[in-house]
Write a protein that binds this DNA or RNA. Structure first.
Length: 311
RNA sequence: GGGUAGUUGGUGGAGUGGUCUAACACACCUGACUGUAAAUCAGGCGACUUCGGUCUUCGGGGGUUCGAAUCCCUCACUGCCCA
């Protein structure tokens, strides 16, 4: 029997109902939630990111929903860079603290890469983003960047996607700092500090698509367009640039385009819907690679397997 | 009733005698992922295939031609104009 501290992970595609399940589990097993969502970390991005309702507790320094602490929500300004590296460090810190309080850490989210960073203890090169270098490299073509990488690090060039500029730029950024991209561990190599139970919410694609559509309509009724308008408004909270909203993707991208009169309302809603569905598909493509995930359909099953795991 | 424009693959929409299973886009399917991961990127998308090909597609039918999505006739349907 393992004596390692136990961590529950709840993952799944967008709109699969992760948040509610995590909260129920937290109430049942004295848990605290750590959100693994690359957009919910930002303040002011609520409806569009599907954040649970709740608010920041100044005294505890954590976001609270239904009396359950939610770590890593509302911890960054939308204009700040908050990436996997930040997430990994903060999530590990949160895990340690939760365990110290004798509570059960429940990592819940849909950002597969972020979850993997913790579960597999992915070692990321200690090279911070270099905005100047990035913007300089961005003006080159993928072919030029690839040729450059071949010269600097032929080993990395062999496995990289030669057409993906984002990856190429990062690889070159690492080369600029370290000379070459360090080798990393393969996937599915456990973080040996903890004992993880990875539970995926099993959904039927057609049903999920329906749910996405319904949820989207609700979000518009709740004032999602207004939310994006407020985010962008320079007089409000510093103001988030259109390009930044574009980068955030999905609701923020499409509503930003609509607010700039680039597309009519109906088209915006339609394109957004398709993009969310495509996103859910991509999430599943990622999760499918992890054969440790236990795919379960309803809460009762999940609670049962969690109870067994914690025993 | 007369005139006129049109009818293309799941959708929009190119294509006007051969290089057309038919551009492009969307949808759809599959996948990648070394600090941007809601981002970024790739492949597939008529059928069958011994992977060399074979067969069937451009409203229906008929015709011209060596050869038609493309030309002609006809039928059907749709839009617009005149009655």
């Amino acid at each position: 029997m393992s004596i390692l501290p136990k961590i529950i992970i709840i993952l799944g595609p967008t709109a699969s109902g992760k948040s509610d399940i995590a909260i129920r589990l937290a109430k049942k097993f004295d848990g605290e939630i750590i959100s693994a969502d690359s957009r919910q970390v930002y303040r002011g991005m609520n409806i569009g990111s599907g954040k649970v309702s709740g608010k920041w507790n100044q005294k505890l320094g954590v976001f609270i929903s239904e009396n359950i602490p939610h770590h890593l929500i509302d911890i960054a300004d939308p204009n700040d860079d908050f990436n996997v590296s930040h997430f990994k460090k903060m999530a590990e810190k949160a895990i340690a603290e939760i365990l110290q309080r004798g509570q059960v850490p429940i990592l819940c989210g849909g950002t597969g890469f972020w979850i993997q960073a913790v579960v597999d203890n992915v070692v990321l090169p200690e090279v911070k983003p270099n905005p100047e270098l990035r913007s300089m490299l961005r003006s080159k073509t993928a072919a030029e960047l690839f040729a450059e990488l071949q010269k600097l690090d032929s080993r990395r060039a062999e496995t990289i996607d030669p057409k993906n500029k984002v990856r190429l730029i990062r690889a070159l950024e690492i080369c600029a700092a370290l000379g070459a991209v360090p080798k990393t561990k393969a996937r599915n190599t456990r973080n040996d500090k903890y004992d993880f139970l990875e539970i995926g919410i099993d959904t039927i694609r057609e049903e999920l698509n329906e749910k996405i559509k319904r949820r989207l309509d609700e979000r518009f009724e709740e004032g999602m367009i207004k939310e994006v308008e407020n985010l962008q408004n320079p007089s409000a909270d510093g103001g988030v640039a259109w390009e930044r909203l574009e980068y955030f993707g999905l609701e923020y991208r499409w509503i930003a385009r609509y607010l700039q009169n680039k597309i009519p309302l109906a088209e915006m809603k339609e394109k957004l819907y398709f993009d969310i569905i495509h996103y859910a598909k991509r999430q599943m493509t990622w999760f499918k690679q992890d054969e440790r995930i236990l795919w379960l359909k309803d809460y009762a099953e999940i609670e049962k397997s969690v109870a067994q795991f914690l025993k």
